[in-house]
Design a protein around this nucleic acid. Structure first.
Lengths: 264, 264
DNA sequence: GGAGATATAG
DNA sequence: CTATATCTCC
């Protein structure tokens, strides 16, 4: 008889500023593993004891001072931790670990890519595409059953944004980004868990900008956060949720958590 | 038969950040007039309607963008408002007004004076002494019954600080500052209302630094805030309080309010 | 809109 | 320690 492992992923937009809502998620959902992106905290100031007190005694941190930063906190053991710096630029955008069951969890925060979708005038856009390309190279060589989760900062499908037309030239949904993400997906034949449980063209958003106070009314969301699984894990995928209500919590992140369950 | 006028003075250390405790003071003490120092708010962003809704419809503001800033808010009319810029440097450190009874209220925020008590290496210290000197010149010419209140940033008596010895070389209690303040007091024969009701050497502090979290235990306070009256007002001074408990309120100012009552 | 860093002031 | 302003980033 197998057990169910509950895995959450959340771009928290500063873990220190949001311990109240993190605590609420832990109490209400009690995931076994929580993958955080945009922790904005150097490992020295990461609220390790806060998570420890809630039972998340296993922690893999890859933080930096001001920006980015990722972390895995877990009730179950984490082995063979490793953080890739695919672009060798010192940015803390990945951390991974292996679970007892042999599955690897990879937690990634893809660069946002700046405002202008043109690599010639906006180096950040080029760096984003390069980052995805390097993930693709890494992905091709993967041989282990893997779950990769995080903020990919790309909404690939037309139904992954509130208006495909309006966002065709907006960073996160441009064809060149979507192509790059598609190549990444094909490199390991990754299963898009979200769209397995919420088939296109059904509405599915994970992010709403802070800049529109009436985000609920306009619902100008995007699906920027993802959970992907190795093909070998197809049969153990048990459930998937997008916790949209979290966007309305007090002092929210602009992203909401994703949760999936696997049978191990 | 006369009425009693209740006048409060408080260095609030940002009026916007502290509306909760200001509201609490207004509810618990209901002064007729409240003089604020360190409002840290340009007049455009001063919470005028907040005070208006609590009955303080008469307001004289002298604010600036980031630092300093003073204000008088009152339930009773304020006439002939005037703000002195004694040093002609654009700093908002004074505002005054006349009451119906003819008494003038002068609300002042004396410069803190920096860290080093030496005018040759610390211009701010020189500016502080100069400020008090210019107040002295102004004071000499006063002919009207006046109440001057505010944060004078000087603790004149030995018993006005937790340790006279320890603070002899600390800005706020150095002999040169005390001398300057003494000259200011003599220039109009000002009555120190605080020490009229709490005679020296009784303990009387109005400020405790934020920098010691255990301020209650150490009690390293200083009497930096004052209420002074013209000699002509001697017989109308009815009461005086230092509201020490306010230092323990939620998100406190480092200063506590002073309240006095006069029979008019 | 909201976060962190930095600088400045107390 | 506790504020505000400015800047950068998302």
């Amino acid at each position: 008889m197998g057990t169910t492992l509950k895995i959450a992923s959340w771009n928290i937009n500063s873990v220190r500023a949001r311990t109240p809502i993190v605590e609420r998620l832990l109490k209400e959902e009690a995931p076994d593993i929580l993958c955080l992106q945009e922790t904005k905290a150097h490992n020295d100031v990461f609220p390790a004891s806060f998570f420890r007190e809630h039972g998340y005694v296993h922690q893999q941190l890859n933080g930096q001072k001001m920006h980015h930063g990722v972390a895995i906190v877990s009730k179950v053991p984490l082995h063979e931790p490793g953080a890739h710096d695919w672009q060798d630029n010192g940015e803390a955008r990945h951390v991974g670990a292996r679970l007892d069951c042999g599955i690897r969890i990879e937690n990634v925060y893809v660069p946002a890519g700046g405002d202008i979708p043109d690599r010639t005038v906006n180096v950040k856009f080029g760096q984003k595409l390069d980052f995805v390309e390097r993930m693709t190279r890494w992905s091709e060589k993967l041989r282990e059953p893997t779950l990769i989760v995080g903020d990919f900062n790309i909404a690939p499908l037309e139904c992954d944004v509130w208006s495909h037309k309006a966002l065709l030239d907006v960073v996160s949904h441009t064809p060149v980004e979507v192509d790059a993400l598609t190549r990444l997906q094909q490199a390991h034949d990754w299963i898009d868990i979200g769209r397995t449980f919420v088939p296109a063209p059904e509405r599915c958003f994970t992010w709403w900008s802070y800049r529109s106070p009436d985000w609920t009314k306009n619902d100008r969301g995007r699906r920027l956060d993802h959970m992907w699984a190795s093909p070998a894990l197809r049969d153990v995928l048990a459930s998937h949720q997008v916790l949209e209500p979290c966007r309305a919590w007090t002092r929210p992140s602009d992203h909401v958590p994703l949760i999936c369950e696997i049978q191990v």
